[in-house]
């Protein structure tokens, strides 16, 4: 860990967020690549298939924010865009059904697909995934006696996303594996039905970006917070120490054997600032956050691993910069 005292910070006062008195904001600093390269660090804290927590240290908020924004709205993903309704006799309206289907996250690597041209009439194997959903609710012939639960009385009384069936176009069957295409979660309830209700739908998924519709966003959310920093300005012990401890998230404040409170791990703090509730210990702490230490949290919707989403976002930023430079050069 680098020494935090040298770091720029924002002060969390009781009623406002305030920059440190000697801090004029990072926009004021002169950009130097060398300095940046020296100080910039990425530290991955946690990574699994759907979630990732990592620190970006020593970067300007504009960049950090750009990555966040790109992940939310410009990293592409696949989602159902068109629903051809052959038959829908369920109580759910056609438009609402289509909207619900659109929001189902799909397992499909968007990097393997292209955007469908706006004027394209025919779907091709490169830009479209096709599914069908054909469900009919009937009375359960072998229903157990004395049961009044709908799941016993009827068959297919609930339509789940797992009932969607993939129809490969062209040579998609050879390119993609069956397991790699389809809804991420099989237990998403699409509709409830009763005997006589029937769904016969053709679902067409295309590649898109979150800017167009939230369903194309590859992340459930991607956001960051600044690293909290807590300093004790005086010694706090005894009852005050336990009170202090209770004002912060668990693990933030530790109490030594001599009953003296010390800051153990400020990272865990939620910055609830509840210390300010107690006049007696209000003056003992200085709350702040490190301005160039971003703790990112990326929750993937399931189609791509969160680390890949981040890398994609970086690539998009790179491409954008490139195209800007190209434009400028042609002037």
């Amino acid at each position: 860990m680098p020494r935090l005292d040298k770091k720029p910070r924002v002060m969390l006062d009781e009623f406002r967020v305030k920059n440190a008195p000697d801090d004029y904001g990072m926009a004021d600093e002169k950009w130097s690549f060398k300095k940046f390269a020296k100080s910039f660090k990425i530290h991955i804290v946690r990574l699994d298939n759907t979630e990732m927590e990592f620190d970006l240290i020593g970067i300007q908020p504009a960049f950090a924010n750009a990555f966040r924004r790109l992940m939310l709205s410009e990293v592409p993903s696949m989602a159902i865009e068109k629903v051809m309704i052959r038959n829908n006799t369920s109580i759910i309206q056609d438009e609402v059904l289509a909207h619900r289907l659109g929001l189902i996250p799909l397992k499909a690597d968007p990097r393997l697909f292209e955007y469908k041209p706006e004027d394209a009439a025919e779907a091709t194997e490169f830009d479209t995934l096709e599914f069908s959903l054909k469900v009919k609710c009937t009375n359960n012939k072998s229903q157990p006696k004395d049961s009044y639960r709908p799941e016993d009385l009827f068959e297919n009384n609930c339509v789940y996303s797992s009932q969607m069936k993939w129809h490969p176009i062209g040579n998609q069957a050879s390119v993609h594996k069956e397991a790699d295409v389809g809804p991420v979660h099989g237990d998403i309830l699409i509709s409830k039905m009763r005997p006589g209700h029937e769904l016969d739908l053709q679902l067409i998924a295309v590649k898109g970006i979150g800017k167009d519709h939230a369903k194309f966003s590859p992340v459930a959310t991607a956001s960051y917070r600044l690293l909290p920093d807590i300093r004790l300005t005086r010694e706090v012990n005894g009852g005050e120490a336990t009170l202090l401890q209770s004002c912060f998230s668990p693990g933030v404040i530790a109490i030594d054997e001599d009953g003296c409170a010390r800051v153990a791990e400020p990272r865990y703090d939620t910055c609830s600032r509840n210390v300010y509730r107690y006049d007696e210990i209000k003056d003992a702490v200085e709350l702040s956050r490190i301005r160039d230490h971003f703790i990112f949290n990326v929750e993937s919707v399931g189609a791509m691993a969160p680390n890949i989403i981040f890398v994609e976002a970086v690539k998009i930023l790179r491409d954008k910069c490139k195209s800007l430079l190209d434009e400028l050069n042609t002037l």
Binding site: V10, L12, F15, R16, V17, K18, P61, A62, A64, N65, A66, R68, R69, S223, Y224, R225, L226, C271, S272, R273, N274, R277, R289, R291
Partner: peptide, 20 residues
Amino acid sequence: NYHGKDIFYSGITGEPLEAY
């Protein structure tokens, strides 16, 4: 926070907002 006021970041600049 017991007041119900949280720290928010501006979605446009990415910096924390001055008010809770």
